[in-house]
Structure formats: structure tokens, C-alpha cells
Design a protein around this nucleic acid. Structure first.
Length: 284
DNA sequence: ATGCCCTACTTCGTAGGA
């Protein structure tokens, strides 16, 4: 009599990783290091991708991470503004940082982590905000944002994305109508103009990326990750935008178990205006 | 658009954020 043993079949294969990955625009990692510690204690992601660390690498507060087991660190910071970091309890197989638009600013970091006999590439991005006026001919910041998106499209295509990859970060674009509190009222506001949402869609399509958050929340539902500091009562007004994203290549879609917006951090004392998003990738 | 906020910096005014 035949008895199949799925377990032995599985263990004969290289083990594919199960892990959680968080992305969070922290708006100064030094100013908000206590909130970061609270978040790690409460949600314990295996990997944390931060944006807007606003911190030179030699001033980065590593101790609160190391004491919690986040021993693997990739920093790409600078003085005053921008800056990204990846902090992990999982070892990195390789690390890289890429400059965009011939600027010396710190807006990208990437690592690979083991996944069975293969690996997974994780990109962490902080795309330029783009200033106030959505016209590249009179606003250099908006021109920079569009050039940055075009450079991403050119880079993240073809063989570069034909692998297990995750792209997270503050992309500073709310692409869908229900990624903002009022599509109509924000059409001419930077972050939701058609010129930006079309460029971001080009980046996504060129790499065959899948919008992971929208696999779990249908496009008919509002979904935000950022609420302005200016609103007197951010939760009551609820005039948010989805500026932070998790994308995966098709190779990982079947292993996506969840994405979760951690709205609670926005109510903490002295919060970032962005909240974390956590994605769970299952073992295959 | 809303409302007049938030952080960094050879700091008390300006740049950058979105």
C-alpha cells in the first residue's frame, strides 16, 4: 500500500524563507528612535526598511536595533534630509546602493536574503516629493521627481526584475483614485497628478511589479499610509494618501500572505506623518 | 487641499517635506 509523505518531499528541497518585512518613513530616526523601539517590540518584523532617516551613517542610533536582534544593517544616509536604511534579523547575502539623477542624495538601498538555494532581492526607495507646483518647466523638484521615476523605469526592467524581488518605500505617489481622500480635489496636487501616477505605472509595468497592498484591499476601498501634520484632528478628518508601497515580482505573488497598514503609530506621541506597512511572505 | 505642521541645522530663519 502506498503512503505518500509530503513532509519528506518538502524537506528534501531547500527551505524557502518565511518572513515579515516592514517599510516606514520615520521622518528622522534619531528624533523618533523611541517609537521605532516600540514598533519593533510590538510588531517584530524580520526586516525593517526606513526612509527619511535624516541622519549621517556615523550618527545612526544602532544600539536600539542591535539590542533587539537587528544585527544586519545597511545604511545610506546623509546630513539633514533624505536617507534610507535596512535593518534585519536575517543576514544579508549582498548589499548595494544606487545613485539616481547624478545627485549625491541617499534615496536607495538594496539587500539580498537567502531563500532556499536562491535569494530574494529587496529594494528600499525614497522617491523625491516633488515640491508644490506640478510643472517640471518651472519647478526643479518636480522635474527631479519625474526624472527619478524615468530612471527607475529604465533600470528596473527585463532581466533585472526576472527574479524574486520586493520593492518597498515612500514612493511619494498615490496612484489610485482611492489612494487619496478625494480624487477630484487632489488631481492637481503633487503626489496624485496624472503625470506622476502615469510615470509610476510605467515603473510598475516595466518591471512587472505587483501592488501587494491592493491584493488584500480592493481598489474600491480607501487605503492610506500618510496623514498630514496640519490637520487639527487627523483621524477625524481622515484626509490621507497612500504614499508608501510594497511591490513584488510575480515570482513571489503566491507567497504573499498579508499586508497590513499599522495605523496605530499615527496616534503615538510625536508621530511620523507616515505609518508602517508590514508584508508577510510565506514559505513555499 | 487642508491648515498654518514638522525636523534639521555650525540654528532664532531657511530648506525640505507632501
Amino acid at each position: 500500500m502506498w503512503v505518500t509523505c509530503p513532509r519528506s518531499r518538502q524537506t528534501s528541497r531547500p527551505r524557502l524563507m518565511s518572513f515579515t518585512l516592514a517599510t516606514w518613513n520615520i521622518n528622522s530616526v534619531r528624533f523618533r528612535i523611541r517609537q521605532v523601539g516600540m514598533f519593533l517590540d510590538r510588531y517584530a518584523p524580520d526586516i525593517l526598511c526606513l526612509q527619511e532617516t535624516k541622519c549621517p551613517d556615523d550618527r545612526f542610533p544602532l544600539k536600539p536595533f542591535r539590542s533587539r536582534g537587528y544585527e544586519h544593517v545597511l545604511l545610506n544616509g546623509q546630513k539633514g534630509y533624505h536617507g534610507v536604511a535596512i535593518l534585519s534579523r536575517i543576514p544579508f547575502l549582498s548589499t548595494s546602493k544606487r545613485g539616481f539623477c547624478q545627485k549625491g542624495d541617499a534615496r536607495h538601498a538594496a539587500v539580498t536574503v537567502a531563500d532556499g538555494g536562491d535569494d530574494i532581492l529587496i529594494h528600499n526607495f525614497y522617491i523625491p516629493a516633488g515640491g508644490d507646483i506640478p510643472d517640471p518647466t518651472i519647478n526643479d523638484k518636480f522635474a527631479h521627481k519625474l526624472a527619478f521615476l524615468d530612471e527607475m523605469t529604465t533600470w528596473l526592467t527585463g532581466p533585472e526584475t526576472d527574479r524574486r524581488s520586493i520593492l518597498v518605500g515612500d514612493l511619494n505617489v498615490a496612484p489610485l483614485e482611492n489612494d487619496v481622500w478625494s480624487h477630484k480635489q487632489l488631481l492637481r496636487i503633487v503626489s496624485h497628478t496624472p503625470i506622476e501616477t502615469e510615470r509610476l505605472e510605467q515603473v510598475r509595468a516595466a518591471g512587472g511589479w505587483v501592488d501587494a497592498m491592493r491584493r488584500f484591499v480592493p481598489p474600491e476601498e480607501k487605503l492610506y499610509t500618510w496623514w498630514s501634520y496640519r490637520a487639527a484632528n487627523w483621524a477625524l478628518a481622515n484626509k490621507g494618501r497612500r504614499l508608501d508601497h510594497v511591490w513584488v515580482t510575480p515570482h513571489l505573488v503566491d507567497r504573499l500572505e498579508s499586508t497590513e497598514v499599522i495605523r496605530a503609530t499615527r496616534s503615538w506621541k510625536r508621530p511620523s506623518d507616515h505609518v508602517p506597512v508590514i508584508a508577510r511572505i510565506g514559505a513555499a
